[in-house]
């Protein structure tokens, strides 16, 4: 049962990855791509790690640290990239 649940989490994460990374190739603005990347890289990766956590609960401490640092760093990097790219002159 838990095995199936962990697979579902990992597969959802990979679907998020693909959905959020494919817009990178098109020519939209940096900010629009940043929105879809935050879906892919933050939320998708979080759900993959939760899937791994269900698989190997004995290493919960390391995986929990991974989730926390992933959420904080990716969000802060998104803000820094948005700030720098919007006030650096060229927007697209």
């Amino acid at each position: 049962m838990i095995e199936i649940l962990s697979y579902i989490c990992i597969v959802i994460g990979i679907i998020f990855w693909f959905w959020g990374t494919l817009p990178l190739i098109g020519n939209r603005s940096v900010l629009f791509k940043l929105h879809s990347l935050s879906v892919a890289d933050t939320l998708g990766s979080m759900s993959i790690i939760i899937g791994l956590l269900l698989k190997i609960p004995s290493e919960w401490s390391l995986l929990l640290l991974a989730i926390i640092s992933l959420a904080i760093w990716n969000t802060v990097l998104g803000y820094v990239l948005a700030y720098c790219s919007s006030s650096g002159g060229n927007n697209d």
């Binding site: 900010l31 929105h35 969000t75 803000y79 919007s86």
Partner: peptide
């Protein structure tokens, strides 16, 4: 606050003005 706004996928804070405004980009 900036962290919370940027964490949700629809909104990103672009800039924080000293006089008390966030510039928020949203889809």
């Amino acid at each position: 606050d900036i962290f919370l706004i940027t964490f949700t996928p629809k909104t990103i804070v672009l800039k924080y003005h000293e006089r008390g405004w966030y510039e928020v980009h949203r889809v």
